[in-house]
Amino acid sequence: MNIFRLAGDMTHLLSVLVLLLKIHTIKSCAGISLKTQELYAVVFATRYLDIFTSYISPYNTMMKLIFLGSSFSIVWYMRYHKIVRRSYDKDQDTFRPYILMLPCLILALLINEKFTFKEISTSFFLFVMWTFSLYLEAVAILPQLVMLQRTRNIDNLTGQYVFLLGAYRALYILNWIYRYFTEEHFVHWITWISGLVQTLLYADFFYYYFQSWKNNVKLQLPA
């Protein structure tokens, strides 16, 4: 564990807590994309399939449970909570998740660390699901970014949520650089490239977020 990865995990945790805080306290999910939340639930469900078979550390298991629990409860709130669901603007959240999930699944079958299609085994299934979750996580924010461009006034908590979500993966990139130079044979091209793509997708959001912070004006993304 290094400082970049710990900071990344804490930033990721904070992003989830900010969103849960918004939804749980003011009972509103205005401006939040349910599609992105559902994609994140799929990301964690496919990423942590091994939560009961492979034990790494109490920290690792605890964080996995927190991410699984929070992502599914956010989806539950937005779908079924009688007050929260009223503030969900489904007309603005029109991104079709399947146009993201299918290519990620096909890509995971073609490009993963195993490359051997012949041994259809449990570990191959785990590899494909894990790789799928990496690719899906890289693009899961797209429905949310599209929705931000449509909703004119982005409230602070939503802006902070997206900012923290992007920052966590940027910190992970620093973690990968650090581990590459400090650990033998630490090479994970698939993780690195999808993590880089993921962070680059936030580039314009980061720019406008920084501008709004610097000029102390309301965050607005150009349509």
Partner: peptide, 10 residues
């Protein structure tokens, strides 16, 4: 045990 793709990261 199953060979784990997911290294120790979340």
């Amino acid at each position: 045990p199953l060979q784990q793709p997911m290294h120790d990261e979340l």
